[in-house]
Nucleic acid binder design. Sequence first.
RNA 1: GCCCCCAUCGUCUAGCGGUCCAGGACGCCGCCCUUUCAAGGCGGUAGCACGGGUUCGAACCCCGUUGGGGGCACCA
Length: 611
Amino acid sequence: MDPRQGLRLLLPAGPVDRDRPRRAGQGPRRPRDHLHRRRRAAPAGPHQPAAVRRPDADLPHLAGHDPAARRRGAHRHALGRRPDPGRPARGGEHRGPGHAGQHRGRRRHHVHRRRRAVTTPATVRTRFCPSPTGMVHVGLMRTALFNWAHARHTGGRLVFRIEDTDASRDSEESYRHLLDCMRWLGLDWDEGPGVGGPHEPYRQSERHEIYRDVAAKLLAAGHAYESFSTNEEVETRRLAAGQDPKLGYDNADRYLTDEQKAAFRAEGREPVLRLKMPDEDLVWDDLVRGEIRFAAGSVPDFVLVRANGVPLYPFVNPVDDALMGITDVLRGEDLLPSTPRQLALYRALTDIGVASGTPRFGHLPYVTGEGNKKLSKRDPQSNLDVYRDRGFLPEGLANYLALLGWSIAEDRDIFSMEEMVEAFDVTRVSANPACFDLKKAEAINAAHLRALPLEDFISRVVPFLARAGLVSDPPTPEQDRLLRAIAPMAQERMIVLSDAVGLLRFLFTDDVEIDPAAAAKQLAGPEAAEVLDAATAALSGLGEWTTPEIEAALKSALVEGLGRKPRQAFGPVRVAVSGRTVSPPLYESMELLGRDRTLGRLAAARATIAG
RNA sequence: GCCCCCAUCGUCUAGCGGUCCAGGACGCCGCCCUUUCAAGGCGGUAGCACGGGUUCGAACCCCGUUGGGGGCACCA
C-alpha cells in the first residue's frame, strides 16, 4: 500500500490537482512567450556574421520544443516525474527498517522541480578533472565533493582525471598533493589514478595521440575546418565592418577553397583547426539552473587544435569526457559560458561516432570570499591545507563545504558523509554564489569534534600534540592515561584539533609557561599573592589528592576562609596551574597534574608576585 | 562593449501559488547553569532589491529596472 495515499488525503492540493488550474491559467500566455523567445533567439546585432544568419534558423527548434508546453507541465509528466537517476528502485529502500522512512517519504514530493534533464542516464558517470597547479582550493574540493556525492547517491561512478597538459604550471608534487587532499576529505573514486579503469590512462599528459585522431576525423567529416586568419586580420576585418573586435573570430575561413588554402600555405602559414558552430540556438537544461540558451551565431567558431598541432582544452576535455562515457558534468559556474561550444562539439563527436550523446550539465555556484568576489587563489582562506593544518576534521569541513550551495533539510545542518550521500540531489543545489564563512565552518567542525567517540578523538588529537612535542606518538602509557582522563573535558572546549595544544600543554610539561596577559590579569597584586598562599596551605596537607578533596579544600580556604568570590578565588590558581585563563576544569586538572607539580607551580607563580 | 549567470535576515540557506505578518543554522545580544572558558538550555535581533504584469490570491510565475558576479585566448 502506498504510504503517500494517506498523505494525499491530508494535502488536498496534491501534485496532480495542482497542474489543473495551471493549464487553464497559462495557456493564453503562450503567444507572448513565443514572441519573446524568438526575439532572444535572433538578436539583431549589426555584427551578426551574414553567413551564420538564417532568418528562420530557430523555427524548427521552437516547433520541437514549445516552451509554453513544457511550462504547462507536460514536460514534468513526460520526464521529470520519471524517477531521476538517484531515485530508480529506491522506493523500497526508503521504507526499509533503519532508515528515517516517513521523513524522506514526505520529502520526495518536492524533489522534482522545474529543472530536469533531457535524458536520464542508466548509470550516472561523473568526473572530477582538476589540473595540478599548486594549492588545492576549497572551491575545487566542493566541486569534487558534489561530483562524488552525486555519483554515490545515484549508485553511479566517479571518474578522476588529471588535466596535466600545462607543463609550465603543473607539477608532480601538486599532483600527489591533490590525490592526498581527495583521500583526506574522504572522497574516493572508481576510476583514475591509483585505481585504474577501462579508460586508461587518466592523466591527460599521457593521452596525446588520442586527440590527433579525433581531430582528423572531425576535419574529414566537415565539422572542423582549417583556419588561417591571424588575430590581427580578424581584428582589422571587424573594425572595417564597424564592429567591436572583442566579438572575436568572424568565421571567415569557413568556406575557403582549396586554392585559397594552398595560397596561404605557400606563404608559409599553418592553419589552426576550428569547429564549425551550428546555426541554431544552443540550449541545455542545466541540472542546477534550468534552461540556458545561447543565441545562434553568438559563439564564434573556436580553435580545437593549434597550428603547431597541440590540442586545446575546450577540445580535449569533452573528447575525454566522451571517451570515458561521462553522463553528468558538474563543474564551476566559470565554465558555463563555454558550454555552448561543448554542446556543438558533442554533436560533432556524436556524428563521427566518438561520443554516444551529450552529457547533462550542472553549473555549481561560486564560492566567494570577503565581499562577493570569487574566492581568490591568493586568499589564504581558499587553501585547503590551512584547514587541515589547523585540525579541521575531514568530515567537519566536508559538511561545511556541502552547505555551500546545498542543504540536507529545513531544520538541520550537521550531518555525516553517509547522510549526505543518502540525501544528495543535484537538482536541489542552489544557483546562488556562496560566501565562505569561517565562523560557521568552525561551528560545524566543533559539532563534529564534540561528537567524536573518545578513542577516535584521542587518535586524531595525538598527532597534533606530538608535533608540538607534548607527547610521543604513540603516547607512553602515562601520557595515554592522562589523555584519556582529560579528553572529554578538552573535547567540548575545542573547535579544531590544534586547539588541544594550547589547552593541554600544561599537563604534559614540567614547568608551565605562563601567558603574560593571563599573568597581568590574575597574578598581580597582594590579593593574588594571598590567594596563592592560602591555596598552597590548604593543599599541602591534603590527605587524598582527588578532585573532590581538592575542590573542598580550595573552597573552604578561598571562598569561606578569605571571603573571595569564586571568580577571584580561582582565577589566580588557574593561571598558576595551567598558565592560561582558559583551561579544562580546575580541580580535575590539578588532580591529573599531581600534587608535586601543582604545588610547585603555585610556588613558582607566587614567586613572580613582587612583595 | 558583447554574452551569460545570480538576487529571501550581516552570512549559508528552507520556501516549488493559499499551510509565510517567511522556517533553520552561523554570528550577535540577553538570561539560566557554572570554579574560568566552553558546552548545554531558554529567549531576542535581523530578510523576500525595486517597478509592472498574470491570478480570487505572489517570496514563489512572466516582463522590465537596479544591483552583484562571471566569461569573452592559438590558458586550463
